[in-house]
Nucleic acid binder design. Sequence first.
DNA 1: TACGCGTGGCA
DNA 2: TTGCCAAGCGT
Length: 359
Amino acid sequence: MRDDADFTRRAADLLAWYDANAREMPWRVPPADRTAGARPDPYAVWLSEVMLQQTTVAAVRGYFQRFMARWPDVAALAAAEDGEVMAEWAGLGYYARARNLLKCARVVVAEHDGRFPDTRSALQALPGIGPYTAAAIAAIAFDRSEVVVDGNVERVMARLHDHRAPLPRAKPVLTEMAAALTPDARPGDYAQAVMDLGATICTPKKPACGICPWCAPCAARAAGSAADLPAKTPKKAKPVRHGRAYVARRRDGAYLLERRPERGLLGGMLGWPGSEWTDAQLPPEAPPVAAPWRAVAGEARHTFTHFHLRLRIYVADLALDADPGTGVFIPAQEFRPSDMPTVMRKVFDLARDGFDDPE
DNA sequence: TACGCGTGGCA
DNA sequence: TTGCCAAGCGT
């Protein structure tokens, strides 16, 4: 049983810390403005929360600004072309998020009159919005007292209670702990306060317990175990896979690219034609078109979530009437390496050295 | 339930 | 250089 006075003070202490230390972010309404009645734009909250899934604030800032400038509301985004959105998302990773982002925008326009639903359960029914994101939007954009549990909250709760069972098994228990602390007042600011605490003080390594607003009640701080929590089940080692990538440039400067299938790795993104990626040293030759391919020195190295990849790279100059096969020629003035996933950009950086007249 | 799914920064 | 880590979701 919780002590109501302690419970109330816990949330109040954190909110007071947040009022003085909230990080400034382009999608956030500062606590002083929020208290004065300002409300965040649900579209901006949703967009930022999806971008922030498993992604650092530093990486998200620029993407968020560009998306908001280009598609300022959900109707604009819903009307965008798939390829334009995928290109704007390129480099941010976890591309299923971008595909679901578009699906979600179109559902909101088609079935919710262009306005985001304001309850956790209705939000969670939308594509790409799971338990965390639904609770976060409901709390931050709609002032609902929902229990918001992300990696920061899990870490803070594990330390506060010195809970040593490993994740992900411990998640239900940590969620209960978070629920017991979530206040009815200022739920959005509270959710953002715990996340700011986890990001700036209760950090994964070397937590700054000396300046933490929850230092006194923290059980892990007392036990000396804070830096070791939360415990996590060990991860599997990443295998190394090998493949070949083919960078063909037509005489007019157009590049031969392929749109990857919607499902799976880098789904829906532009990329260079290539072989399968296999555990073997190198898969058999699989050039996309007949051409005098030249091997480029070195290899592109890239690490995905669950494997390391090494790509041998081949380049060729093609005639103006060359057959694109299953690919598509992108004119030189439309080709931007930044429209492609990072691994494909690495391939291009090496390939351009292999052309006689690298631009 | 466990796995597939990106990337960049850091020690 | 290598491994770990960051505001999870879908299947």
